[in-house]
Amino acid sequence: MTVPSPEPVRSGPAPLLEVSGVDVRFGGVQALQGVDMTVPAGTVTGLIGPNGAGKTTFFNVVCGLQEAQAGRILLAGGDISGRKAYQRARLGIARTFQRLEVFGSMTARDNILVAAEVHRRWARTGPDPSAEADRILDLVGLKARAEEQVDAMPTGLARLVELGRALATAPKLLLLDEPSSGLDESESEEFGRLLTRLAADGLGVLLVEHDIELVMSVCSRLYVLDFGRILAAGTPAEIQRDPLVRAAYLGVGDQAAEEIAGVG
């Protein structure tokens, strides 16, 4: 006799990232409350919401820089909730930072090289770090400025250095925190194409971005975070029609609501 399982049997492999019930409190402030999220491999998933909604806190929880009071984080089916930040990075989670965290005293190339070297050291396999650094410099379009010190670079370029550094760890999941701020319109479009290409190669991308146009064009699924809660989830088209989202954004400012409604 078999007892029927209350949950539907999952078909296929586990999703790349599966977050459930994450709570974070800072003193009396509830920064995240019962957040659930799924990020599949091979796609770009968007996370939008007003400033202070908890997007960066959520990133910190996923990559291990912030402890959560409750909740589980599964990477490719394995529970990583108790792991340290560097261990999660070795399991395949890479990220960029909204407030830049570049190695400012080093050149763009060394930023990427050090990440490739660290990966090679613990993985004991993979391409030669130096060749890998050159390949990634080319990929993110920094070849011509490889030998510049990053502290002296404009913000937009420094963000690309962070992206390159994240890619050099050979990640499975890439968390991008407002990567396009500091880029102009055509550069943003270029950046969007790069993201689509990375996802097509199998990378799972979670994108926090204020540039709604970019979000709508590259994301296959969107989550809306507001006051630490997931307000809505769905395809970009569904999100645009969602009355809750529109109300939330109307509460914040008409312009943002128009942007959401107006795109597409």
């Binding site: 990559c63 190695f103 050090v114």
Partner: peptide, 24 residues
Amino acid sequence: GSFGRRLAALNDSEAACASIGMNI
């Protein structure tokens, strides 16, 4: 060398070091 780069990286940002899988 490679250790020196890790050292300089550590000096610049520990958070970033952790994010690339470096055992600080």
